[in-house]
Structures are given as structure tokens and as C-alpha cells.
């Protein structure tokens, strides 16, 4: 799923500026599941903004709402009245939802209240770990179902590097303690599968043009297009 983290409050305040009618718009899909930008969190941010506005005497009015999926226009239709009435929309959706909102209601001012950060797996309640980089050239069929692009700190195609120690990556900071060495995991799982030879052969350089290095990507399903 797509995960996001809320921006620092001061940054949101700076984006809001002196706008008077503020709509905090959550999204009830991915960002709600990761407890960052669903309706509940939109209500909390709206309350915070009101408490701040009250103290500062700005007279700003803050409301909240949420779209079922902010990335799809038909769901945006359902909150269109509230959006039209606002001077600014503070979106708590992922980067896709925020842009979808900005595009649908152009030139309405739409700003993000979250930083979209990864495609993560919920490891346990309230803990997400990055699992996919959407690189457009999946290699995990040969790496035991473990992605070296985002799970190896150096995106090695032929790991592990010399910094792998006791199954842990050399990159260990207070914020990122105990990162598992992806290539150690790959080696162990390939052994368990009896497919070590996949790690003994040299993997060629990755085709990064299939990821964002190749420019914005586009996907069309001709057979499914409406006629």
C-alpha cells in the first residue's frame, strides 16, 4: 500500500498562509489504512488548525471532509461542494490524490499536508516497511521474492556488499535501526529453495529507464478502454 507521513505543523501553516476558508481533505483509502490521512486524521488536523487560528485571531474557518478515494475523479465529485466553497484545500491524500484534486478543481489552491514516502507492507500494527520501488523492471523472481532495489540500501543487483554484518545492513542510524541486509535474506531464502545458483550468476545492470529515470510513466490497457 501507499504510505505517507504528516508534515510538520509549521510547514502546513506556512502552506496555508492567510487563507480564510480552509478545507482539510482526507482520503479513506491507503492513507487512512496507514493512520495518516483518513477522515479521522483530517478531523484532528482541522481541530489543530482551528485551535491555532483561534489563538492567532486570524478568523480562519476550518472544515474537514474525506473522499473515498481522492485519486479518482468520481469520488471527488462527492465532495465537490465543499471544495468549491474553500479558499484552499489542505489534502491529506497521497501524492496521487493531491494531484488528482488539484487537476480536477483547477485552479483551486491545493496543498499537501503529508509527505508520501513509500510502498510499504504493514509488518505489524502501526509499523510499515518499504517493499517496492515501482521501478518498472521487477527482479524478485530471481531474488527469492525479496526486492533488492528498495530493501538493499545501495540497490545492488549483486549483493551483499562488504557492509553486511550478522544479517544487518551497514546503514544503521537511530531512525533506521536494524535494517535487515536484503541480500543476506535473499541468500538464505534461495538456499532454502535450493536455488543458490541464481545468486552465483552475475546480474546485469538494471534498466533504470523503466523507472522514473525514463521520464513520467504511462500505462494504457487498450483492451479495456471505453469505446
Amino acid at each position: 500500500m501507499i504510505t505517507a507521513e504528516r508534515k510538520p505543523f509549521d510547514e502546513i501553516l506556512a502552506l496555508v498562509g492567510d487563507k480564510k476558508k480552509i478545507l482539510v481533505a482526507g482520503c479513506d483509502t491507503c492513507v487512512a489504512i496507514c493512520l495518516t490521512g483518513g477522515e479521522k486524521e483530517a478531523e484532528v488536523l482541522a481541530s489543530e488548525l482551528r485551535i491555532k487560528a483561534e489563538q492567532d485571531g486570524t478568523g480562519a474557518e476550518v472544515e474537514h471532509t474525506a473522499a473515498i478515494r481522492q485519486c479518482e475523479w468520481e469520488y471527488l465529485d462527492m465532495i465537490a461542494d465543499k471544495v468549491e466553497a474553500a479558499d484552499i484545500v489542505v489534502s491529506m491524500a497521497c501524492g496521487i490524490g493531491i494531484q488528482s484534486m488539484a487537476e480536477k478543481f483547477e485552479p483551486k489552491l491545493v496543498v499537501p499536508a503529508v509527505d508520501t514516502n513509500m510502498l510499504g507492507m504493514p509488518q505489524e500494527h502501526a509499523l510499515w516497511l518499504e517493499r517496492c520501488g515501482a521501478c518498472g523492471d521487477c527482479v524478485i523472481g530471481e531474488t527469492a521474492g525479496i526486492c533488492p532495489v528498495v530493501r538493499c540500501s545501495k540497490s545492488l543487483m549483486n549483493g551483499p556488499c562488504g557492509g553486511s554484518h550478522d544479517g544487518k545492513c551497514e546503514v544503521t542510524t537511530p531512525e533506521k535501526e536494524d535494517i535487515e541486509c536484503a541480500w543476506h535474506l535473499i541468500w538464505e531464502r534461495l538456499k532454502a529453495q535450493g536455488r543458490e545458483e541464481l545468486m552465483i550468476k552475475n546480474r546485469p545492470p538494471k534498466k533504470w529507464n523503466l523507472s522514473s529515470s525514463g521520464g513520467p510513466r504511462k500505462m494504457v490497457r487498450e483492451e479495456a478502454k471505453l469505446v
Binding site: 549483486n158 551483499p160 562488504g162 553486511s164 554484518h165 544479517g167 545468486m199 552465483i200 552475475n202
Partner: peptide, 14 residues
């Protein structure tokens, strides 16, 4: 001295 130790000679071969 990196881990997994058993893979280190293989990596040299690579």
C-alpha cells in the same frame, strides 16, 4: 569478514 561468510568466496568468484 562480511556476512554471510559462506558467500564471501562465491562473491569473489563473481
Amino acid at each position: 569478514f562480511g556476512d554471510p561468510f559462506e558467500f564471501r568466496a562465491i562473491r569473489l568468484k563473481k
